[in-house]
Design a protein around this nucleic acid. Structure first.
Length: 852
DNA sequence: TACTGGCGCGCG
DNA sequence: AAAGCGCGCGCCAGTA
């Protein structure tokens, strides 16, 4: 290693001395001395006080800097900050470039953060130190460090195919490179491919799919000694027929291997979609790490860095989506390290048997289940979707037109259209609070005048209604009509992706699009349904979190309510209303209607008597008579959950104001909270127990044994952070186990019900969404509800619950599901109609008759 | 021109 | 002193 072989390219000579010493310290730490380096700057002088360095300033210096570099002829160049990158590489984006050495004209160039940034944010020192370390590695290696054990073959001849197949045994790590993330060919893909897509559609396609068609670029396998990289669909090396052959040969061999993936659901789903083969995932390094540390990140590169301390092998985005030698090398790294990680994570997982059981009995089986669910997707009623779109566009235009009258007064206008942007909180705030001089109600965290819904509702101005209509229509249109279009396949199905590692509690998250946030508004929710001959069935665990909380806290009163088949949310609903003295008229009216319905004579009764009466009726009966009760119960549910998980009375005040329109006094709010805990005195004890446990141990567990690590809950010093962690210690086991029950039931249904007539298409935390062939609806309904209320996996986990678990089912378009009796009656009618029209079609007739 | 953070809001 | 939890996504605005 020769001295002075490193050239630092700084911004200008007047570097802040502290920044300079941070940088030099980092270098020294990494074993690089000051005599090893020389220094030049992009600018010869610092810019005048208060002036920033501009792109053009840098441009002018570029040539001089390059000349200087050539004269000094260093082996290694460090670029400090964005301006140095701009000057030398003509590239920007230091956060992406940093830490990744590149070779150029025989020199190694390493972009780093400018040490100035550490003056504002101390945490950046770590990054600077890491990059200094990378510089040392480059210097020791004499170039960009490479994995020495890596030995990959590009499989481009039949001889290599043979050799590869022979090598596929034991533990094999498998991975794919693809042109994009979404494997399904969409209707939009077709339009783009045949050139009939509109400009707008092309733009949409570009932003969701990078403008690519779904193709597999490479398929790679990490074996004991070698990595095999097969060029795939976009490479042009193998014909389609040859690829099919290779894929089938490989698939057959993999059946006998121990198959390791990093996020195997992704790869197996792609192979199922593109080549119709089923791959089994035996171990998933991403999921394993998720269970070992749910708070950390789980990316492959990150884990390789963390556990193996290897250099970053990442490449620019474009390389991953196109076949090339560089792509092959990158691909080989992926499987090489995935295979290495498997052995480390296996050990870590085995350190905790309870967590491992969650992995083995729930998470890994879920991989297979969700591959199928995502492959099937959810069916969309496209005609109805068009109707919904037309309605929403009308609504939006109408609201906007009515708003313009007020917008004309605003001075802040869009320069092009000279109109206010009603979707901009900033412009709207300017209009409301400065032009129209409406008193400010609330500030946002960052100090802006809030224009949130709860604020608008408290403003007395004629435009509020139209503003809310505008926002509602805009939200539904952009989120669920336009937002869904890029994902609709040729059959009109969406294929949401479920992330098994998406949350810290063990719940799943969902994206592309998110099925778990579809509005309950029937205009949107009922767009999700099933195709001809099939029916959508939703089953949900009723009041499951409350039941689990009752169980965990051993809360006798609440347990009692559940054993008697009561409805705690309804109780809270009526009691809280009573407190707020609202809805007296409605309560009496409902009671009267109920008498009429029952054929009983209504005798005048007092308010408190009516309250008792309506309590006994139950929420469902009340909702049948007056629809508003459903909404009231829903709000009460939020209050129950709020208190259960540590909500304070001040927030209840806000909640009562925003949801009931009632201004509650401090005393009343405090009473409300006290009443909840008087009603359920077991909860405070349980809260303390959870807080104490988390404080001592730094984690909590759900009934299944899944861990939620809460380091912030530890220690003796009270702080907002510790409080937050303690509330999480209360909520987490409940949320976690509710989800696990749901998954257990889903897994069992998949096991018991046969593919030709049953498909699980999604889950929503405490509910499953199923597609069932019409003739099997009754069976799935009856057996499915049994499974939901006691999945057999509970026994494998040795969990015994004293609280009864109950499930409900809705049959038909999502959110408009009917009970079994109603649905069967309707089916009979449909069949009769069909028989009247034509005497043929005996098969379908028979099926439905069987079920009826 | 492309990314990031904050906000607001959809769901459980 | 201050106190429900867990998500994803569209949009805006600021910044690179």
């Amino acid at each position: 290693m020769s001295k002075s072989d490193i050239l630092i390219v700084g911004e200008h000579p007047d570097i802040n001395p502290r920044a300079q010493s941070i940088f030099m310290d980092a270098l020294n730490e990494a074993g690089i001395e000051s005599e090893d380096i020389r220094w030049i700057n992009v600018l010869r002088k610092a810019p005048p006080e208060g002036k920033n360095i501009t792109k053009t300033m840098v441009k002018h210096e570029r040539e001089r800097v390059l000349k200087k570099i050539n004269r000094r002829d260093p082996k290694y160049i460090v670029l400090l900050g964005n301006n140095a990158c701009q000057a030398v590489l003509e590239k920007q984006g230091i956060t992406k470039l940093r830490g990744k050495p590149i070779t150029h004209e025989g020199r190694v160039i390493l972009p780093m953060l400018h040490p100035n940034i550490a003056l504002h944010d101390e945490r950046r020192i770590d990054t600077i130190e890491a990059d200094a370390h990378r510089l040392r590695e480059c210097r020791e290696f004499g170039g960009i460090p490479e994995e020495k054990e890596l030995e990959f073959e590009i499989v481009d001849t039949w001889d290599k195919v043979k050799a590869m197949l022979k090598d596929l045994r034991g533990t094999v790590a498998t991975d794919l490179e693809c042109t994009r993330l979404y494997p399904f060919t969409t209707a939009l893909d077709d339009l783009v491919a045949d050139g009939t897509a509109s400009q707008e559609a092309i733009k949409q396609h570009k932003s969701t799919h990078n403008g690519n068609q779904p193709r597999v670029v490479a398929m790679q396998f990490g074996c004991r000694k070698r990595q095999w990289v097969v060029p795939m669909e976009t490479a042009g090396i193998w014909s389609d027929a040859e690829l099919t052959k290779i894929v089938h040969l490989v698939t057959r061999k993999l059946k006998k291997c121990f198959n390791v993936f990093h996020n195997g659901k992704f790869d197996a789903l792609w192979m199922l979609e593109r080549f119709q083969v089923k791959w089994r995932v035996d171990f998933d390094t991403m999921l394993a790490h998720y269970l070992v540390d749910e708070n950390d990140r789980h990316g492959l590169k990150y884990l390789a860095q963390k556990f193996l301390g290897v250099p970053d092998w990442d490449v620019e985005g474009g390389v991953k989506t196109e076949w090339s030698q560089k792509n092959a090398k990158y691909a080989a790294h992926d499987v090489f390290y995935t295979r290495k990680l498997r052995f480390i994570l296996k050990k870590m997982l085995e350190e905790d048997h309870d967590v491992k059981r969650v992995h083995d009995l729930i998470m890994v089986p879920c991989i297979q289940m969700f591959i199928e669910a995502e492959h099937r997707g959810v069916f969309i009623d496209l005609d109805k979707m068009d109707d919904a779109e037309a309605y929403l566009r009308g609504e939006l235009a109408d609201a906007q037109e009515k708003l313009e009258k007020w917008g004309a007064k605003a001075t802040l206008v869009d320069k092009k259209t000279e109109k206010i942007n009603w979707g901009s909180p900033k412009q709207l705030g300017h209009l409301l609070f400065e032009v129209l001089k409406i008193p400010v109600v609330e500030k946002t965290k960052s100090g802006a005048n809030s224009t949130s819904e709860s604020v608008l509702l408290r403003i007395d101005h004629p435009m509020v209604g139209d503003l809310l209509r505008f926002r509602a229509a805009q939200k539904q249109l952009s989120g669920f009509i336009e937002g869904w279009r890029p994902y609709l396949d040729r059959e009109g199905r969406l294929h949401p992706v479920f992330k098994l590692h998406g949350t810290v509690t063990g719940r799943l998250s969902c994206e592309h699009p998110n099925l778990q946030q579809v509005p309950r508004d029937p205009r949107i929710r009922s767009l999700i349904t099933a195709p001809e001959g099939w029916t959508l069935v939703e089953m949900d665990l009723s009041q499951i979190e409350l039941r689990i909380a009752a169980e965990l806290a051993d809360e006798h009163n609440l347990l009692g309510v559940f054993h008697e088949g009561g409805d705690p949310h309804w109780q809270t609903a009526i009691r809280e209303i009573e407190r707020g003295a609202g809805y007296a008229k409605e309560i009496k009216k409902t009671v009267k209607l109920h008498h009429k319905q029952e054929g009983k004579e209504y005798k005048k009764m007092g308010y408190s008597e009516a309250v008792e009466y309506i309590l006994n009726m139950g929420g469902n009966a009340a909702t049948e008579l007056m629809k508003m009760w459903k909404e009231v119960r829903k709000k009460a549910k939020a209050i129950n959950f709020g208190y259960l998980y540590g909500m304070w009375w001040k927030k209840f005040k806000i909640y009562a104001r925003d949801n009931y329109g009632v201004e509650v006094t401090d005393e009343e709010a405090q009473q409300s909270r006290e009443a909840f805990f008087e009603l359920y005195p077991g909860f405070p004890n349980w809260h303390n127990k959870q807080r104490r446990f988390a404080q001592v141990n730094g984690y909590v567990r759900s009934l299944s044994g899944r861990k939620r690590r809460l380091p912030a809950a530890m220690g003796n010093r009270d702080s907002p952070e510790r409080r937050e962690a303690q509330r999480q210690a209360i909520n987490s086991p409940v949320q976690s186990f509710a989800n696990e029950l749901n998954l257990m039931a889903a897994l069992q249904m998949r096991k018991e019900f046969r593919r030709p007539w049953f498909r699980l298409v999604g889950t929503v935390h405490d509910a499953v969404l199923l597609e069932v062939r019409n003739d099997m609806v009754e069976h799935v309904h009856n057996r499915g509800l049994e499974i939901m209320s006691h999945p057999e996996l509970l026994d494998d986990f040795e969990i015994e619950m004293s609280v009864p678990i109950e499930a409900d089912a809705g049959i038909g378009a999502w959110g408009q599901g009917k009970d079994l009796k109603t649905w069967l009656k309707e089916q009979l009618k449909i069949v009769e109609k069909r028989e009247g029209r034509k005497a043929r079609s005996p098969r379908r007739k028979k099926r439905v008759k069987q079920s009826a």
